[in-house]
Amino acid sequence: MKTNRMTEIIGAIDENLIAEAAQSTRKPRRRLRYVVGAAAACLCLIAGGVAWKTGLFRAKPQKPVTDTEFSVDEDMDMVLELFEGEFAGRTMRYQKVSVRAAVREKIIEGELSDNLGESVGRTSDSDEWFRVKEREDLQYLIRSTENEGYSLWKFRYTDDYTYALVFPLVYNIHSAEDIREIVARPSLRDNTTAGKKMQEEVGVHSFTDRAVIARFYEILTDEALQTTGSLRFDAGPESVRAERYFDIVTADGRVLDFVKYDGVTGGFFEFSGITFVPSAAEDQAWLAQLLSIAYNPDLLLPTATPTPQP
């Protein structure tokens, strides 16, 4: 077919040319660059102030910050050997948070005042990275550099990521008592009409029973939680039926929205590619029952990891 042939011919062009075009931009004129830089700095300050004013850093329920940006050029690796040495030797990966969502909130509410610098909390040895004021957890950090001023960073993962590790170290969750509520939402993977219908059928369920929260916490933070060797890449209404997105509401009012569960492979996952399978089959069965996920053997993917033996 002609179209296919043409796209294949163009598609087979020298890779070095493709890489060059992928990264190519025209540098703005010097004057414009200053304007853009100044505007970006102002945006950071405004958004920081707004984030502060709108309660991003306060101990109360808040909208999760989901509008994040990836930067190919940004070197996001850093080794944090600060804060009483609790991260010594561990590579922490943070991601710069886009502030557009915060600015949008600001426009709606018409609030504007402080800047991000006023949210800087305690530090130890670092003169660049800071905790957020009045927050004990490390989900967000503030960075201050001479060139860029203040910027907000959100935790992504560690080099040896498990919930047993990051719950206490990063999210300041040390036991089930630190969790107030678990909300299970349907997957948003399929937003077609059929998918949305399925989302309505599944509905949103809140769990506040202490025994349920305790068991959920126990499963998530099991040291033996196994990393799976595969990820799911399918979509469709069935994925809505089989998956749940959790909001973990902490006792101090923070909302953690990164944990998800897939009833087909029977494992937890995050959008960044992290996947875990509970070590006990009865835990998977309990989760399926709790979340009203009916197993359908026909849905099992060929790449699904079998339930590990205890």
């Binding site: 190919v72 996001m76 992504r156 993962y157 996947t275």
Partner: peptide
């Protein structure tokens, strides 16, 4: 599997 995460970070956008 760290590769998947780094791929997503570096090339996702």
């Amino acid at each position: 599997e760290q590769a998947i995460r780094e791929l997503e970070e570096r090339f996702g956008r």
